[in-house]
Simulated assay, not measured.
Amino acid sequence: MRVYLPCTLPTLASAVGAGGLGPAPLIGYAVTPALTEWYASGDTEELEYVALTEAARASLRLLAAERADGVEGAARRVVIAAEVPDGSVITAPGIEERATVRLVEAIALTKVAAVHIDDPGAIPDIEAAIDALPASDQGDDDARFAVDGAEAHELMWYATQEIPDLLSS
Rank of each mutant, 00 (worst) to 15 (best):
P6D: 08
C7E: 15
T8Q: 06
T8F: 02
A13M: 10
V16N: 11
G20P: 04
L21G: 01
A24E: 09
P25Y: 05
L26E: 01
V31Q: 02
V31F: 05
T32V: 02
P33H: 10
P33G: 07
P33I: 08
A34K: 15
T36A: 15
E37M: 15
W38P: 03
A40W: 15
A40F: 15
G42Y: 15
D43Y: 04
D43G: 10
T44I: 07
E46D: 10
V50E: 08
A51T: 04
S59H: 01
A64V: 00
A64T: 01
A65I: 03
A65K: 11
R67P: 01
A68P: 06
E72T: 12
R77W: 07
R77M: 07
V78H: 03
A81G: 06
A82M: 03
E83K: 10
D86I: 05
D86G: 13
S88H: 10
V89T: 12
I90H: 15
T91L: 14
A92C: 11
G94C: 03
I95Y: 15
V101P: 06
L103E: 02
V104D: 07
I107T: 05
L109K: 04
V115D: 01
G121Q: 07
I123T: 14
I123S: 14
P124Q: 09
P124A: 11
A129I: 05
I130L: 03
A132R: 02
